[in-house]
């Protein structure tokens, strides 16, 4: 059978997301939520159980830092009354602070300012946005998930999302990896070559905080050490749905993220 006809055999394979939720996208773990915030008697144990220090107890209250959580599930197994996997892949956030769950009563005004500033910058990107990806010390899985956005299931071109080779044509910088020392220069140069306005997404916990790969003599704890970051996508690695949510959130095509 010629290739052209093969292409037609499957019918529609493209995800309905973001118009409607995608059943598959909600079928595996995307984040960990805290269902009961009161610290248990074994509080310290829970904090130490977490391999990346993502669980904190302040004033007998539990907070979970999704920018560090690698979804290993240890806390969920140890204390299912308090911790649970979340299957909603809309995990991206504007700014880093909303990745701390449950939300504390913090600087609401600051967040509003962040959102407004971002919304102003991305006004021009709503119809089409051009993304430059840079690997700043990933484990290699993030690149697979970013590249998956181009497969027929996610088919992001249908949403006006394009990847570009030249930073001079890029509106958005999508960075993966723990911020290796070696990529500091190339990352900076790529960012500087991009025209204004521009947006930066830190994709994955490594890019958000350094993840489990950090600290070492050769990592810097994420992208923030090098560039101002607008949107964070947690996950180790983030799934294509979470990445797509991050991109759409950045350009204002979907509203809020996981803390909804």
């Amino acid at each position: 059978m010629p290739w052209v006809l093969r292409g037609l055999r499957e019918g529609v394979v493209t995800t309905p997301y973001p118009r409607r939720p995608d059943g598959y996208g909600e079928s595996f773990r995307a984040a960990v939520s805290v269902h009961r915030q009161d610290a248990p008697a074994h509080g310290r144990e829970i904090v130490e159980l977490c391999p990346t220090g993502a669980i904190a107890i302040e004033d007998d209250t539990i907070f979970l830092h999704r920018d560090r959580c690698i979804l290993c599930g240890r806390c969920v197994a140890a204390d299912p009354a308090r911790f649970a996997f979340e299957e909603n892949p809309e995990t991206a956030t504007i700014g880093r602070r909303p990745l701390v769950v449950p939300p504390g009563d913090g600087d609401e005004e600051g967040l509003v300012r962040l959102r407004r500033d971002l919304a102003r910058r991305v006004r021009a990107f709503r119809r089409s946005v051009h993304i430059r990806h840079v690997d700043a010390g990933s484990d290699g899985s993030e690149e697979w998930e970013v590249a998956a956005l181009l497969n027929p299931v996610y088919d992001v071109q249908r949403l006006g999302i394009h990847f570009t080779a030249s930073p001079r044509h890029a509106d958005m910088l999508l960075v993966t990896g723990a911020g290796s020392v070696g990529m500091a220069g190339p990352l900076r140069r790529t960012y500087e070559a991009m025209p204004h306005p521009k947006v930066v997404i830190a994709a994955g916990v490594d890019a958000a905080s350094g993840g489990l790969a950090h600290p070492t003599y050769a990592t810097t704890g994420g992208v923030e050490a090098h560039l101002p970051v607008d949107v964070y996508v947690p996950g180790s690695p983030p799934s294509p749905f979470s990445l797509l949510h991050g991109i759409l959130l950045a350009i204002g095509l979907v509203e809020t993220g996981a803390t909804r």
């Binding site: 391999p51 690997d135 010390g137 723990a178 290796s180 020392v181 070696g182 489990l212 070492t216 050769a218």
Partner: peptide
């Protein structure tokens, strides 16, 4: 460019976290 010093990182982890 993407050297992360990952081998050294193992030595700062408890043996049980090594697999992660």
């Amino acid at each position: 460019y993407k050297h992360r010093g990952i081998e050294r990182r193992f030595s700062s982890l408890p043996a049980g976290d090594g697999v992660l």
